[in-house]
Nucleic acid binder design. Structure first.
Lengths: 335, 335
DNA sequence: CTGAAAGCGCTAACAA
DNA sequence: TTGTTAGCGCTTTCAG
């Protein structure tokens, strides 16, 4: 309760009877400090509960190592497994690297203050490409996740969603399905587009027809999946398999199908995308395409830090491969 | 790509041919600047794309207005509606107040650097009471959400979970149920404990028996609800109504029950807690106890800001009331 | 209404 | 190994 001013570096120096430089050295773990002084300083720091002032450090150092994370603010994003994994992954990596994480939810076009961070991670870019460009023009290292902006010399770590979509389709086709539908992700996102693209490509290659009513646009949310699924199952010729662009949607699709009396996978196969652990339990373990979201986020932070620290040079591009995880929600079509 | 140094205040001053003080004044909207200079400075700022350096401002001002948000790091928290709403609410409020949000996931007892923020919001305190105490001892304004720490003179905004639990039980009892079970929240959390407490109290008051096998401990996750529900429905005398301490759990409970052939609400009533919008769609609209999470988070930020700015005095205590939302998942028991 | 100058707390040459 | 001394970019008295 005492309104005592926080201890500053010279309080510590005075108590330890050394210069502030020495204190600064022990804070920054510069090795050239005698054991004796080291001990004295540490004692003083502990006694005074001293913590260096980050703003002052930044100012003096002329650099900033905090990581900015900007999340697109479109409705529903926070209810997606995707967003949560990214936040968790980035948060976790920052905790470990002892870096501050400054969080921005970008609702529209508000400028982001790149001044409070050393680098920024964009969790996908949807309508905010301008922000990325601005930040880059400003000399702030940027890293974009889950989006492969080919016409922008920016660092990114992404997943090969085209391959992922194709992988899902391929698996279903090999199982013998001919009537395969898809509930897409938000088609504003590159991931959504790419998964659909890969899916379509593969069906075309295998010469399997894809009637337009078999392509329903979702937005990754359970709700959109429910709506899509109801349409799909009401079709005169319903599909025997469906590829949902997220596990959340796949799970909801399964619920809807079961409510309508379908048996999974006997009368309907469902494959998802994500590898959401929640999809392992439930009535039937979900077959899905795994994308390493958490890893992607962690890697984004580490790479960005390395760049900010000057240990790596931009642009760094990483594209991770998705992976088929076979569980129990798909089988060959009954006939 | 030009590695040009960012423009600083005296670049602006030089270009506008005024002193840096004047520039500082227009940045801070001090009214005593002539229209003419004002315009010149603004022109220069725009031309140079100047943005004030936040660290320097903080240092000079001797204060920091960023808001810290610390989330307990226990497994699963990120998959809860609760966490997401808090993040959204806090994020949203910070966006509006133009305050930086620095985000901490506290995994265990790591100290948090209260130096980079002006105040910190604890999204519940579970095992990290020490952190709160430290921050307070350090003179950093704190605000705890969703927890009413009676032995700590800290600011908080919470929900009356005891009343909420009682409300759910009361509704079920009034409907005529005699065999009422509950799937609790994580009992490490105060919210989990309180909801259970309110629930038990009310049943006791109404003289309705609550056998121990009707109390299953969950952790707010869908998975824990599935496990609990399976046990519940396998009982020789299963309940006719279930109170789940979160909507996610209630939804999963409904799924499990439907898989086992129950009809909701005809043969089993289920009531949740949260008012998660996802629970409106699905096979049956969920009756629930609403808690204003988003509002709570927003209010926490606003109040904290006011305290940091010296406009309000600690401690401020807010307890919001939960509210019964009747939809379709409960009815009188059939007999 | 405007500007000069003194720091804010810390780091980083540069000397010693 | 240690200390001295400039700043880092900005705010804020305090005189003009």
């Amino acid at each position: 309760m005492p309104e005592k001013r926080k201890a500053s570096i010279d309080d510590v120096a005075r108590r330890a009877k050394v210069s502030i430089t020495t204190v600064s050295r022990v804070i920054n773990k510069v090795p050239t400090v005698s054991k004796k002084n080291q001990a004295k300083v540490e004692e003083a720091i502990a006694a005074l509960k001293y913590k260096p002032d980050i703003s002052a450090q930044r100012l003096a150092r002329g650099s900033n190592t905090a990581v900015g994370l900007v999340m697109p603010g479109y409705p529903g994003i926070f209810y997606s497994f995707y967003a949560i994994e990214i936040i968790r992954g980035v948060g976790h990596a920052c905790e470990i690297l002892k870096q501050d994480l400054v969080f921005h939810i970008t609702s529209g076009y508000n400028e982001l203050n790149t001044n409070s961070v050393g680098g920024v991670i964009f969790a996908d870019i949807i309508e905010n490409r301008k922000q990325v460009e601005n930040a880059m023009a400003f000399g702030v290292p940027c890293m974009v996740i889950n989006n492969i902006p080919e016409d922008l010399a920016v660092n990114y770590v992404g997943v090969n969603n085209i391959a992922g979509g194709a992988m899902a389709a391929d698996y279903l086709v090999n199982l013998g399905h001919q009537r395969i539908a898809t509930i897409t992700g938000n088609l504003q996102t590159q991931a959504g587009q790419h998964r659909l693209e890969g899916f379509k490509n593969l069906l075309a290659k295998k010469k399997i027809a894809l009637p337009p009513e078999y392509v329903l646009e979702g937005d990754y949310s359970r709700r959109s999946a429910r709506i899509a699924m109801e349409k799909l199952l009401a079709l005169p010729v319903p599909p025997t398999a469906v590829f949902a662009a997220s596990d959340d949607m796949a799970l909801e699709a399964i619920s809807v199908a079961m409510e309508k009396g379908f048996k999974i996978p006997q009368t309907l196969s469902v494959i998802g995308f994500d590898d959401n652990p929640a999809a392992i339990f439930g009535p039937v373990a979900l077959t899905t395409i795994k994308q390493p979201l958490f890893t992607m986020a962690e890697q984004a932070v580490k790479t960005l830090s390395a760049i900010v620290a000057g240990k790596k040079k931009s642009p760094i591009h990483v594209i991770l491969a998705p992976q088929l995880i076979v569980r129990d929600s798909c089988s060959s079509p009954s006939r």
